[in-house]
Nucleic acid binder design. Structure first.
Lengths: 337, 337
DNA sequence: GGCAAGACTGTGAACGTTAACAATGCCCTC
DNA sequence: GAGGGCATTGTTAACGTTCACAGTCTTGCC
């Protein structure tokens, strides 16, 4: 910068002013400075800038297993939205989720000087870690439950599960079974709640959920158990599309036809779902909207530069009807008599 | 830091020495400093540190559509390896890939002061952008072709395609059709090359590849065309698992049984593949190894602090036999007579 | 007891930028 | 034509570290 100043015949401060679009720089001076910058190939040093302004224009993202479609999509849209707003994104992907791990990640990022943090915290234990935050650090939780005083952006899991369950009941099924996600996950919990609510409100029996861990393999295991009950079970709501794939596979292997003998509904709408056999009826989550909203909320907090009222944004899910769910083959009410 | 020094009754420099594990600090002094740090909750400022040392301990990653399984897994393992080595990772995900976009991303990251950059550049156009790098910036390309003088880490696509094609020939198929990835992608190109090599070497006819774009939808379109040729076509090598899913779907719809009437082999081994109907025979890419290797190479460059000989690491792929490929239903050579 | 060597600690100046304030020159008004 | 105000520029001091060097204190040896 000193070199630029010398070449342009001005002071370093004037160069700084040109760079920051300050008022009150004569057009001719500005041109001379810009020419010098161009000539010397000067690039301003963000680190020095961050030191004095106390703003790094970088955000942190803490996430869990960004290999999964949901977190990957969320992180992707967060990054896009952040960059569009002129911020960079530093990512910490946690292999295992526990309170200490999340807290460490938050501390690391705070040390690194990020201006704010988005925590993709879909587990109860991760959400708890938000109680002990680095002081004064703007934070937004994604899918993070509604405890504490951290702003939260999330998809309405309960509403999504309702859509799925209601659809199956509307098709004339007597009740709906459920293959759930791991119990520590808030999303799994929300989907169970929505499913249970609808069954209870309709006065239907509520079967014991089959536990899965989001993986196709666990869905496969659940599917085998369901296949053994084919005839008694005519409809299943599976907590995500990957497990639904495993369920479909197990049913196919056991000769249970979908949807004729058993209807299956998933959750997420991953790009593959449309091409399962049969194409999967599911509930779409708008991860793009979640990412964009979380950045909006976070930037508001950063720019306010002081504590702000906590915000809770909820993104509605969308039902996607395909071929894996059809009317019950039995007249309604014929079962369990 | 000045506060800590005051509380501990030493100079700021001694505090710095304690923080950096310098020799020649008396045990008692060190204890006093540590106590003061603890008492004040002092945290060292990475930005100031970066300014004077000229090392941010941050790496940049440029990638394309981190929603796809391959890039997502690669970026994940890069992040893990980097953090294990004490580095943070800033990510730039590109929506569209072109030379200018990659160059801009590299410039942004360089401005931001990263110590090195990993470019996940599976397209020809992205690889070309590596010709005009920010001067003196250590860079490693992942899946980036072997031009220029940038170090490259990649999975051996040609070998993987060979494994797939040879397997199908070994099963007695007369020839193997191919559903390819988008033409700009180096991976797509490598898979075509391996496939073509094996067919040519075996003296088999080389059918025109069907073009896809990695998506299940494009695989579905290709699958319908293949189904129309069932009888003539008995074996297909599909350039990734997602497209293979689309192919399977189309074949199922058209009543073509897999593998009895047509064998299908994919590429990638995504977690879902094992649960397709039928479970997909495929070629596994070890994305974890790719990520780890790329960080190793990059850190070597950074620590050498000067130009280093270019390295080209190749990670071998692994064949995974499942149920979607089986011996030809026709005696070998019975076709095209 | 003096002296050299090594252990330990402190002082001042960087690093490259922005903030705060001061200084200059010009125009306009009275 | 003197003075107030504004536009433009320069000067100095931060920001929070580490580096280079200069001390001071101990220890051991002659």
């Amino acid at each position: 910068m000193a070199d630029v100043a010398r070449v342009a015949g001005v002071s370093h401060q004037t160069v700084s002013r040109v760079l920051n679009d300050h008022l009150n720089v004569r057009a001719e001076t500005r041109a001379r400075v810009l020419a010098a910058i161009d000539q010397l190939g000067y690039r301003r040093n963000f680190v020095a800038r961050a030191l004095v302004t106390r703003h790094s224009r970088r955000l942190g993202v803490v996430s869990f297993d960004t290999t999964l479609y949901g977190p990957a999509s969320t992180v992707y849209s967060i990054e896009q939205a952040a960059r569009a707003a002129g911020y960079f994104v530093s990512i910490v992907s946690l292999r295992t989720i526990d309170r200490a791990g999340v807290r460490d990640a938050l501390d690391y990022l705070a040390d690194q000087g990020v201006d704010g943090i988005v925590v993709v915290a879909p587990q109860r234990s991760a959400a708890q870690a938000l109680d002990d935050l680095p002081a004064g650090m703007p934070v937004v939780a994604v899918e993070g439950g509604h405890a504490g005083d951290v702003s939260v952006v999330s998809v309405d899991q309960v509403a999504g599960a309702r859509l799925a369950t209601e659809h199956l009941l509307d098709l004339g099924h007597d009740t709906v079974w459920h293959v759930s996600g791991p119990s520590d996950w808030l999303e799994a919990e929300g989907r169970i709640a929505g499913w249970r609510d609808v069954l209870t409100a309709a006065g239907r029996p509520v079967p014991e959920p089959l536990n899965g861990d989001w993986s196709p393999r666990s869905g496969y295991a659940a599917g085998r158990r369901l296949a053994a009950m084919a005839g008694d079970v005519t409809a299943v709501f599976v907590a995500n599309d990957q497990m639904a794939l495993g369920v479909l596979r197990a049913l196919t292997e056991e000769g249970v036809r979908v949807p004729e003998q058993m209807s299956v509904v998933g959750f997420d709408d991953i790009p593959e779902s449309e091409f399962f056999s049969p194409p999967l009826t599911t509930v779409r989550q708008d991860f793009g909207a979640v990412g964009r909203c979380s950045i909006e909320v976070l930037l508001r907090q950063i720019e306010a530069d002081g504590p702000l009222a906590r915000e809770c944004l909820v993104v509605p899910p969308e039902f996607v009807a395909r071929a894996s769910a059809s009317p019950s083959c039995r007249p309604h009410g014929a079962v369990r008599n």
